[in-house]
Simulated scan of single mutants.
Amino acid sequence: MTDPNIPPPERPEVVHHTTINNPPARSGGGGSWIALLVGGLVVVVLIIAFVVFQNGGVQAPDSTDVAVDIDLPRPELPDAPTMPDLPDMPPVEPPTVPQPNPAPST
């Protein structure tokens, strides 16, 4: 450790400095393709808007008279003699539920 009471050494007459130039780091670098993508989307939206607003899109029908038939044929069931009879249900006893314990006497 040096003594803080000692005066600093004399500086030399010629001081040599070395300068190092570091170019700034590239930030991003992928901004050009994003700009191309966004620009392409804007062009597509403008083309769609132009077609729709120039009545090139869906046009309303000229007449208001519309006839719609909603009668649909119903499916026919087969005749009753061709259907097999269902089997009888087997005898099943109802389940038993245990009874709660009697209340304690005090």
Rank of each mutant, 00 (worst) to 15 (best):
V45A: 11
G28Y: 14
D88F: 01
P102L: 04
V58E: 07
D71A: 05
A35Y: 05
D71Y: 02
P91W: 06
P12M: 01
E10K: 13
N55F: 14
H17C: 03
V43K: 02
D65N: 15
L37A: 11
P98T: 04
I20A: 05
T18Q: 01
G31A: 10
L36H: 03
G30N: 15
P102W: 00
Q99P: 03
P81W: 01
M83T: 13
P9G: 12
V38C: 14
D71K: 02
I47L: 15
V92T: 14
V51F: 09
G29T: 02
P91R: 06
D88R: 12
I47Y: 02
V66Y: 07
L36D: 09
A103Y: 02
P9N: 13
V58Q: 04
V68N: 02
V97A: 11
P98K: 01
P98N: 01
P78N: 02
S63W: 05
A103W: 01
I48E: 09
L37R: 04
T2H: 01
V14A: 08
N5R: 10
F50A: 15
V14I: 11
N101H: 07
P7T: 06
G57F: 03
P75G: 05
R26P: 13
N5K: 09
L36Q: 10
G29Y: 07
P102G: 09
P94L: 13
L46T: 08
P87A: 15
V43C: 07
G57C: 06
I20R: 08
M83A: 10
